[in-house]
Each structure stands twice: as structure tokens, then as C-alpha cells.
Design a binder for these strands. Structure first.
Lengths: 346, 346
DNA sequence: GCTGGCCGTGGGACCGCTCCCACGCGGCAT
DNA sequence: ATGCCGCGTGGGAGCGGTCCCACGGCCAGC
């Protein structure tokens, strides 16, 4: 019965704690903490001792304990609207993930993946996120998405891929859709095409409007008359592309080129053109957008506008980390250049 | 100077705590905790009071505080080998994510996305994961992947999509690759094809061996002689498909069907067949695997073997939650049926 | 020589929760 | 009536960090 209060009790199969490191290094907890957090006010002697103890013990800081006191979770959420499966296809999603992930792991933050339903649960989701992460990245935002605003109200730094409207108040990254579209149409003009149609995306997306502007601009610059008959709205699906193409052929059977707002739409257009007895690119040239896996695999391989997806991911993460660092200030927008990838369809 | 120790100090812009709920409900902290965690030993009076207080205060439990004491993080990681961009294409990745996410959010767990490099960092990654999550889900495991074993050694429950070898010790979910391949070849036989070649995947993947077995089995069942000349190895890429097809045509110019181990491989094969002057499906029928976006968009649309991807995701998560619940026991394997989707290529 | 300031340091208080012990109370068997 | 049991309960201890205050030692300035 001489058990006078168990001294340190090495703790069974448990990971070493900061306390254990301090004991082993012969310093106080505060000093270990300072070393870990890179404080300059530590003598090199202490620092060396602590670093050695950390290495010997294989110490890894307990994130929960740190979060409890600092109120930072060191994690950000990537929110994806459920149903936007389009996003998951190459190269979009892999690129975004790779970029975001690279930027985040470099600073020791972790990435949470959250699928969001587009129903009335957005308020609940916003509150959930505000308790779980330091910031939020969102892709595929639509004009009427409220989640970004809800998050903003809760003070959760948020960065979007793309803007909801031309005056997006939140930080965001987007490709130069306007310039990409203009370049695509210029390319068609250089190939000698003169009756150039376009199949757009959904009207409630900013990318649709930007690409349409680029299309118009290119034609006006070239003094080619623009005909509203040559503009049809699609929905980014293959079926939408077929339907739109059918309508275009009805209106202007003499068209000699089509600029589609997505590769999948373009692939539908190609099918419909072929069904009407036209050859691509001999009779009608076709350009897509996204440079997706479909562009490379359909026949003929599709000329397409490529976005710097991975860099967009990296930039999104960087902007968010910026906002985190400066407490919500420094909200910025970044526009990245696109590149035309020429293949057999033009 | 009459400031005698600030009493409760309502705390400024901070979220309500369990203490605040207890005070408002007029009960002790223990009781609030019991209500939140669904303990049965709470009088219905107390329970009602607590629930009302929670609602009024908009209380959300602090996960870090809970994790600190329970040593559970209530989160699992989905580990994806970097470079396996193939996985990111429709429908694979979106399906897995949707299935996993649905199952996890139903029980309040969160999903961490982790990109893993295939270098010597795996030990570090394993240790990182063991500190950050309760369990791990892995996709695209190769025969020589060590991460699953490292995790197992650290006692981190792990569930794989697919098996590394035929005697996978870890819990895993896979599609019936054998049955799917057999069914595909049977379909070709029913279409009257007799000289059926196959382009496999990489030999270090179990799916490759399983699909090859199914191919052989179907031919043997039908008393069609199998010729090793008809088997060529690919690598799941389009270029690999072209190369393999070229080799097959050299060896057996009389072949009348090809079963490819992936849609992308199949699309390469189709291009090469066409280049050789053959028509698909008139001269040579082609079947792919995965029922990916490529299958639907190439010309002709590809007959393909579809896997129940979303269900695989759901099942993976369910198996992991099971292991979590029973402390690593109940390690199981689940095989899900495939389905042949017939299109114009056969 | 004394004072002031700064540097490096140790350690108490605390973050918000769960775990568990101890207590009061009523009902049942003795 | 007395005991015991078990239920519902309150609250102390502790999880593993960070923050910050106080302290000793040293050097520079007067």
C-alpha cells in the first residue's frame, strides 16, 4: 500500500504528448510549444534538445487539443453540389483536387469533401461548415446559389471557382472564358469559316454569358455580321447539343462552323451534323470547350479550349489561405488564361 | 475595484457550450451530455428541457473537445494515389464519392480527401492518417501497395476498393470482374463471333487477372478453342489499346471480336480497327469495361460492362463503419454484380 | 554600483467535452 | 421499520495543447 500517487504514469499504448517531449528534453511545456510553432524566442540549445526528443519519441501534435484552444481547425471544405456529375469528369475534378491538395498540404491543412444538396438545407450546411472548417472552396456555383452568402454572413472565408455574376463580391478564380471563346471563334475565322454558329450553356451561369460575349466580340472584330439565328442555348449535355444542332441546321443550313460551350455539347453536335449528311470538319468545323476526355476520344478529335484547371485549384487554395491569414481582407478575383488545343475537328 | 471574480461571463461572440445548455435547462453537464449521446438513463422531463435549450441556443457540440477525450475523430480518409487520373473520370469517382458520402453523413462522419504519392513517404502518410482519422478507404490499390499493411499495423481500420491479390486480408469491396468479363464474352458468342481477342489491363492488378479468367471461362464453356495469340496486355490507355490492337491484327487478322479491359482501351482499339479498314461492329465487334463517359460518346457507342459504382462506395463505407463499431473484427469482402450495357459496337 | 529592460523560460489556467464516481431518493424484500 | 438496490443526477478530473504571466539572469546605461 505504499503506492504514493503514481508519478508520471507513462500511459499505455498512447501516443507521446507534448508533456513527454518536455520531460525528455529537460525543458518546460512552453518551450516545446514554442519550438513546434516556430517561435524565435528559443535558445538554440533548447531547440536542439526539443527537436531531438521529438524525433526520438516520434511525437505528433494532437490536432484536437490544438483546435480546442486556438479555435482553428486547420482544414477547409471543398463543397460540390450534388448532381453536378459533369464536374467529375476529366480533367476538371482531378485537376482541381490536385491543385487544391498541393497547396493545402504544403501548409499542413486538410481537405474535407462535402456534397451539398440544393435544397433548403443550405442554412444547416452553412452552420455545420462554420463549426467544422476554417474556410470553404466552392465549385459550380450558380447565379442563385445562396450558400456562399450564408457562409459570408457567418464569417466563414469562402473562395469560389467561377463567379455568380459579373460583380461577384466573394473571392474567386475563373478562367478567361471571354478570351477563350473569342480565340476559338478567331481560329474558325482564320480557317476561312464565315457562318459561325454557337451552342451556349445554361443562361443562369456566368460562364455562358462570358463565352457568348467572346463569340460576339470576335465576329464583330472581323466585320462578320452576327445573326441571332446562329445562337442557340444548350445545357452542357450531349442530348442538348443534338437538339440545338438540329435547330441550327433548320435555321441556317448554310452554316460552316459551330462553337459549342462544352465538349459534350460539341459531341452531340457532331453526331447531328453527321446524321444530316455533313462531314466534320470538311463541311462544318466544330470547337468545344474544356478539353475534356471526350474531346480526345470522339471522332474526329475535337479542337477545344483548355482551362488551366490545376492552377485554378492551386489559386483557389492560395486565395483562401490569404483570406485566412488576413482575417477576411484581401478578397480577390483571379482570371487565368485559356489555351486553344487544335485537333482534327477544325 | 469591486469586481469580485467575474461570475459566468457570457463570453462574447462565441458559440454556446454544453455548459450554457446545462444552465439554461437547469440540469447538470452530465445530463446534457447523456441526452446528446442518446443515453437511455435520462428522465423524459430532463430530456425535454435539454432538447429545448439546445434548440433555443442553436447549440452545436464542439468536435475538437469531444475528440480530445474520446480519441475518435469521427472522420475517415479517402486515399487516392496521385497520378491515377483515370479514376477521376465519370462515372467512377463521382459514384464512389456519392456512395461514401451518403453513408458517412448519415452517421455524422466527415470525409477527408487525401492524395497519396507512391514514393517512400507511405510510412509517414500512414502515421499521419492514424493520428487524423478513425479509418481509411482506398481506391486503386495495386498488388504491391504497402500503405494498407502499414495502416493495418498501426491498427487503423482500412477498406479497399478491389483486392490486391486473391487472398486480400483486408476488408474490401469489388465488382464481379470475373462474371462481368464472362458475360461480355458470352454476349459476343451469342452474336455469332468465334475469334474473340482480348486486351487486358496491367498485369499487376487483380482486376486484370479476374477479367482474363472470365474471358477464358466463357470460351471454354462454349467449346471455342482459346488461343494465347488472342491475348495481349494493355495498360488502360488509349495508346495502349491501339498498340495492342495492332499486334492482335498482325497475329490473327481473322479475329471478329475484341473484349477490352477498359473503355479507353477499347476506344484505341476501335481507332486502330478503322485504320486497318475494318468496320465496327460489322467486321469486328468491340466491348469495353466501366461504362464510362467515353463509352457513350465514341463512334460507335460502346457496349460495356457496368459496375455498380455508387453501391460500391456505399458498401465500402458501411464495411468501414462496421469495423469501427466492432473494433477491427468483421473484416469482410463483398462482391457486387456487374451489368452488360449493350450499344452499337457489338 | 544600481536600475531598467529584454530574453529565455516554466508553469497555471483554460479551451469544451466525456467519463465516472458518489449521492439522494423511492420501492421492494426482509 | 430497516436494509438494499438501482435509477437519475451533479460535478470533479482530465484529455493535450496554447496563451500569457511572472521570474531569473544578463547586459547596457546612468
Amino acid at each position: 500500500m505504499t503506492s504514493a500517487a503514481q508519478p508520471p504514469a507513462p500511459a499505455p499504448g498512447r501516443r507521446p504528448t507534448l508533456n513527454a517531449v518536455a520531460a525528455r528534453a529537460g525543458v518546460g511545456r512552453g518551450t516545446v510549444s514554442r519550438v513546434i510553432n516556430g517561435s524565435p524566442n528559443v535558445s538554440s540549445r533548447s531547440r536542439a534538445a526539443v527537436e531531438q526528443a521529438i524525433a526520438e519519441l516520434g511525437y505528433v501534435p494532437n490536432r484536437a487539443a490544438r483546435t480546442l484552444v486556438t479555435r482553428r481547425t486547420d482544414s477547409v471544405a471543398l463543397v460540390i453540389p450534388e448532381g453536378e456529375d459533369r464536374l467529375f469528369s476529366e480533367p476538371y475534378f482531378s485537376g482541381i483536387i490536385r491543385g487544391v491538395s498541393a497547396e493545402l498540404t504544403a501548409v499542413g491543412m486538410q481537405l474535407l469533401l462535402v456534397l451539398a444538396r440544393n435544397d433548403g438545407e443550405q442554412a444547416r450546411l452553412a452552420s455545420y461548415l462554420s463549426a467544422r472548417v476554417d474556410g470553404v472552396l466552392m465549385v459550380a456555383v450558380h447565379r442563385d446559389d445562396t450558400l456562399p452568402d450564408l457562409l459570408d454572413d457567418l464569417g466563414v472565408p469562402t473562395v469560389l471557382a467561377g463567379q455568380r455574376s459579373e460583380h461577384e463580391p466573394l473571392g474567386h478564380v475563373r478562367a478567361d472564358n471571354y478570351g477563350g471563346a473569342r480565340g476559338a471563334v478567331q481560329h474558325l475565322l482564320e480557317r476561312g469559316r464565315r457562318v459561325i454558329a454557337t451552342i451556349t450553356g445554361p443562361l443562369n451561369m456566368d460562364v455562358t454569358r462570358a463565352r457568348l460575349s467572346g463569340y460576339r466580340e470576335a465576329l464583330e472584330n472581323a466585320d462578320v455580321s452576327t445573326d441571332e439565328q446562329l445562337i442557340v442555348h444548350g445545357d452542357f449535355t450531349e442530348e442538348g447539343g443534338r437538339t440545338a444542332m438540329r435547330e441550327l441546321l433548320r435555321r441556317r443550313p448554310d452554316l460552316d462552323a459551330v462553337f459549342a460551350a462544352s465538349d459534350v455539347t460539341a459531341s452531340g453536335a457532331v453526331l447531328e451534323l453527321r446524321a444530316s449528311g455533313r462531314q466534320v470538319p470538311e463541311d462544318v468545323a466544330v470547337i468545344g470547350f474544356d478539353d475534356s476526355i471526350v474531346a480526345r476520344h470522339i471522332d474526329p478529335p475535337l479542337t477545344s479550349v483548355q482551362q488551366p484547371i490545376e492552377e485554378m485549384g492551386r489559386t483557389m487554395a492560395a486565395l483562401l489561405l490569404d483570406e485566412l491569414a488576413q482575417q477576411g481582407k484581401g478578397r480577390r478575383e483571379v482570371v487565368l488564361p485559356t489555351q486553344l488545343v487544335v485537333r482534327a475537328s477544325t
